[in-house]
Simulated assay, not measured.
Amino acid sequence: MITSQSGKSVPVNGAFTPTECLTKGRVGQLSPSGIVSLILSGFELDDVIAMISLSKLYSTPQITERIVGKTRTLTRRQRNKDNINRLSAHQSAVAFQYAKILEHANFVFGKQTTAEDWLGRPCPHLDGLIPLDLIDNAIGFQVVKDYLERVELGVYQ
């Protein structure tokens, strides 16, 4: 468990999935429109940091910055303990996309280290692109998601 700025305990390393970190464990109870409402409200920065901490790959400064923005901004936001820091709707959508892909890759490849290795290397079936570089936009996210679904079904030519 880690303790967030707001004093809440957040399970890490298997107790919560990435999307459960973002939704405070309610992802299975929410409709797709409920998830959209959370995204539009903006995820709490502490919850996004808890999600990022689940992954060695996502914890690198370059990937963390893709999800939450510039490192200086993140540091300044973390120091501001007077109020709950929320990401913008766009940043929250990106964070959710990263969380969903990490979960799906973990399921497909059976091990987080294998999933993270796949996410960080060029994929011949994605025209040599690195899956991690595609996740932060809607079309790239869908391409990676579709490919993982094909791998899951054994149809990945």
Rank of each mutant, 00 (worst) to 15 (best):
F43H: 01
I135H: 02
I52R: 04
V108F: 00
P124Y: 14
K56R: 14
P131T: 08
N85A: 15
P61K: 09
I84A: 09
T114D: 10
A115D: 04
L74F: 14
P124W: 08
Q112W: 00
I139N: 11
K111M: 10
L129G: 10
D82I: 08
L45P: 06
V108R: 04
A93G: 14
L87T: 01
G42W: 00
L119K: 03
L126S: 10
R79E: 13
Q112F: 00
E116M: 07
A115N: 04
H104C: 11
P124K: 14
K81E: 09
D136R: 03
L54H: 09
P122S: 06
I49C: 13
T75K: 12
L87N: 00
A95M: 02
G110Y: 05
T113E: 13
T73M: 06
I84T: 12
R77A: 12
S92F: 01
F107K: 13
S92R: 03
M51F: 07
I139A: 15
A93F: 08
Q112R: 14
A115S: 07
D136V: 06
D47W: 03
N80I: 08
N137F: 13
I130W: 03
L54K: 08
Y98G: 05
I139K: 15
I63K: 07
H90K: 14
G140T: 07
A138K: 13
T73F: 06
R76Q: 11
